[in-house]
Design a protein around this nucleic acid. Structure first.
Lengths: 212, 212
DNA sequence: GTCTATAACGAGATAGAC
DNA sequence: GTCTATCTCGTTATAGAC
């Protein structure tokens, strides 16, 4: 099944999306990239949208599987942040964040692509979230952050940077560097321990008060 | 010029992109939304890509102008973060972050859209950056953050959350909430002043050492 | 500036031979 | 499962009347 036509069509779709984006996807362009007959898309997937949906989900699945062990090996916030950087850099070459971002853009009208991207995003956020929970356990940060929301924010941020990079590579690099710096700051809070905890608690009280 | 056909075509393009995304854009769909004749797109813009490019730039310009005074009024990090949230919420209704994100996706193949989105992104990042520089002046944070890169990271993050929201509104909300919490943490570091500065410096030395 | 009409082509999708 | 051929429709873009 490795060299099967169905698989080749998915790889063709990946290639078209990576190099030209979702707007360039058509039965003909994908079939051409896959060196397959255009009619086979409809035989194997029924329609083009379904092909894209399956492409997005399986590609994401395969990349997340690739990273699973590495996420599991992470035990500190610093390590997690370093892994995040690695993901961004590796996917810059692998191109699967581009695929997810492009499919997400194509999902604006809802439909099958919305369902598929929702599923694909869930695969990333689940991995990030569980790593966050593990890493933040016992940290003063745990008390004030929601790993669930944070995992989503991080995933969304990565997608945004991926899109940003495509039109401004230098700017994307700067953005990544800035995030790394912020990461260090979070680490510092972590290390400050009880001092930071007290400070954060005081701040939260102040903020809460001010908003009443 | 307010009710001119050219303007109506731009508004039609905005409507199509907002409701159905970049993949649904065509001379016919836009003309229909603008209640204008399809041929007029080619008379006024030459081709559809140019229409989208101008739509993206002018829409971004108008929204950024809308926020300029509010950015200028910001004098603390907390206020800036609050404004950031406001932007995200208001643009959720206004829909112009969606337009920028969608155009960015359409810019994957380069060409005119890449140029236009580069320009549009620059308008946002310039505003965010100048506010960051002002707000971080004299803060211990200034020493360790690059406002230029941070502004790009923030802008990219907003675009990512915007895309994320379109397929998972609840998740987008959680992401936004998590960022707000992180914002408070940054604020705390700011308030800690010299204590934080020393801690961050020590941490940076440690990190630098570990990487050698 | 705006319209109709139409050329020229690419799109999704299906039928049917092999 | 894969191919060719084809239908039908939507697409960009232009020509030319008004």
């Amino acid at each position: 099944m490795v060299t099967g036509t169905k698989q080749r069509l998915i790889e063709g779709a990946l290639e078209v999306i990576r190099s030209q984006g979702i707007t360039a996807v058509s039965a003909r362009s994908v079939a051409s990239a896959a060196e397959a007959n255009q009619a086979l898309i409809f035989y194997h997937f029924g329609n083009v949208e379904e092909l894209i949906a399956q492409t997005c989900v399986t590609a994401t699945e395969s990349r997340v599987d690739e990273y699973r062990e590495r996420f599991a090996a992470v035990s500190t916030l610093t390590e997690l942040l370093a892994l995040g950087q690695t993901v961004l850099v590796e996917e810059r070459a692998e191109g699967n964040l581009v695929v997810l971002a492009q499919t997400l853009a194509g999902a604006q009208r809802g439909g099958r692509l919305a369902e598929a991207t929702h599923e694909a995003l869930g695969k990333w956020t689940a991995e990030v979230e569980s790593a966050l929970v593990r890493v933040l356990a016992g940290s003063p940060l745990m008390e004030f952050t929601d790993p669930r929301g944070l995992a989503r924010a991080v995933s969304a941020g990565f997608l945004g940077i991926t899109l940003f990079e495509s039109v401004d590579p230098a700017g994307g690099e700067q953005a990544l560097a800035a995030l790394t710096q912020l990461a260090t700051l979070a680490d510092v809070i972590d290390d400050l321990g009880p001092v930071a905890t007290r400070a954060v608690r005081a701040k939260l009280r102040a903020v809460t008060k001010a908003r009443r």
